[in-house]
């Protein structure tokens, strides 16, 4: 086992891309959760209305 600077230099961009990727995905999830929290009442109302509509037709 010896030091390998070349391997290290190859790993650095992966570290950059990896951390950037994690933050992008996380921020996307955070935004969606905020949206879900604020929209859940609306989503519920739509789901209930659709259910009522479907059961009425039957």
């Amino acid at each position: 086992m010896s030091f390998n600077v070349e391997y290290f230099m190859n790993a650095l961009p992966i570290m950059g891309k990896g951390m950037l990727g994690i933050f992008i995905v996380t921020i996307a999830i955070v935004l969606v959760v905020y949206l879900l929290n604020s929209m859940s009442d609306i989503v519920n109302a739509i789901a209930n209305a659709t259910y009522k509509l479907l059961t009425k037709k039957k």
Binding site: M1, S2, F3, F8, A11
Partner: peptide, 9 residues
């Protein structure tokens, strides 16, 4: 991961 690369993995 970078450190392991430096150690030759």
């Amino acid at each position: 991961m970078c450190m392991a690369s430096l150690f030759g993995f």
